[in-house]
Simulated assay, not measured.
Amino acid sequence: MSQSDQSSHRDTGKSTPEVSFVIPCYNEEANIVQMYEAVTEQAKRHSLSYEIIFIDNDSTDSTAALARGLCERDPSVRAILNNRNYGQMRSPTYAIYQAEGEAVIAMCCDFQDPPSLIGEFISQWRAGAQIALGQRRTERTSWLLGATRKVGYALLKRLADNPIISGVTGFGLYSREVVDMFASWNEPEPFIRGMALESGYRCVVIPYDRPERQAGTSANSFWTLLNFALSGLSGSAKSLLRLPLLLSVSSFVFTVLLAIFSIGWCILVGFSPLLMLSTALFVMFSVLLLFIGLLGDQLRLLVERSRNVPLVIERERINFPAERSLPAQRTIHRAHLDGRA
């Protein structure tokens, strides 16, 4: 962005912010005010204009009340309060789609996504990147969680339809055209880190050492993280639905070899009821797998064509301008497509 563009952006006073910061929260009463202050400091230093959107996933502590207080204190702060907990995929992505900035930076509220990287994200975007992602280089965590992550990334790399970058959590910057394109996909469980690579936009990765949570207790149990990983796998590895088809082919090949062996055994040695029964069972198993695979593939096609599930139902939105009093409905603009790499 040139100096003349920056000056005109600053002087016109237009309502569209240059950068939107999206911060999902769940029981973050110990961090939300400090996160607001840290992000505000970075935003004033690196952006021309900005907004901060907190989306509360039906917290059971005072997070929502604190977010409301920040909205009263600062006109650049907005809040979305969900009517229930929609999980780690749907709630943050929904808030990203509600942002109006020319670039959108998504980050967690626990300071494990350090605000100090904001300046680097914005610099990379101004230099031409359409997506800038933070990549976890190191992190102090339990051996079980570390091992689980390694296994999860290994599975994703092997089975995902598109490449997966290890250590990327979705923390990063997404340009306006990227956000609008993602929203148009109508993913019921959007796996942002997978979508970022699937989309083919210009992407840069910025390594960082991930700090520990600043305060409070993480709501992520082993089962929560496992559920998140499985959702990501199913969302970014749709080819798994074809696995029964592949298994049926393998089983059929084995059945043919077994049938040849059974016939040869009957000719050379004598009739074997157990061997013939085994062959018949493998034939039936192969046919069953074939039909299950075909059903799975048809289901995959239906899912591809009928994704229209709302990500979040809002209980309340606070401090949004009048023209944004209702949830945004994103569309793909021709100019975005023309500018795509």
Rank of each mutant, 00 (worst) to 15 (best):
S2D: 06
Q3M: 08
D5N: 03
D5G: 11
Q6R: 02
S7M: 10
S7K: 15
D11R: 09
K14A: 15
T16L: 13
F21E: 00
F21H: 03
P24W: 00
C25M: 04
N31Y: 03
N31E: 12
V33E: 06
E37W: 06
T40S: 06
R45E: 10
H46N: 00
H46Y: 14
S47H: 00
S49Y: 07
I52V: 07
F54N: 03
I55L: 05
D58G: 08
D61Q: 04
A64C: 06
A67V: 05
A67N: 08
R68V: 07
R68A: 11
G69N: 13
E72A: 12
V77R: 03
R78S: 08
L81K: 07
N85Q: 01
G87T: 02
Q88K: 14
S91L: 13
P92H: 02
I96E: 06
I96Y: 12
Y97E: 02
Y97Q: 09
Q98W: 01
C109L: 01
D113G: 06
P115T: 00
L117E: 01
L117T: 05
L117V: 04
I118E: 00
G119N: 03
G119T: 07
F121Y: 05
F121T: 08
R136L: 15
R136T: 11
T138D: 06
L145H: 09
K150A: 13
K150M: 10
V151D: 08
V151Q: 04
Y153I: 05
L156T: 09
K157R: 14
A160F: 10
I165Q: 02
S166L: 15
T169D: 14
G172S: 01
G172Q: 00
L173P: 01
L173T: 00
L173D: 01
R176A: 11
E177N: 06
V178W: 07
M181Y: 14
M181V: 15
A183K: 08
W185R: 10
P190L: 14
F191S: 02
I192N: 06
R193K: 07
G194D: 00
E198Q: 15
G200Q: 07
Y201I: 07
Y208F: 10
D209A: 14
R210K: 12
Q214S: 13
Q214H: 10
A215H: 08
S218H: 00
N220A: 11
N220W: 11
F222I: 11
F222S: 09
W223P: 11
L225I: 14
L230R: 12
G232F: 12
G232D: 00
L233P: 00
L233R: 13
G235P: 11
A237V: 02
L243A: 12
L246K: 08
L247M: 05
V253A: 09
T255E: 05
T255I: 12
S262C: 11
G264M: 10
W265M: 06
I267S: 04
F271M: 07
P273Y: 09
L274S: 14
L274T: 04
M284V: 06
M284S: 14
L288E: 09
L290C: 03
G293F: 01
Q298P: 13
R300K: 10
L302F: 14
E304G: 14
R305N: 13
V312L: 04
E314S: 09
A322R: 13
A328L: 09
T331Q: 15
L337V: 13
D338Q: 15
D338M: 15
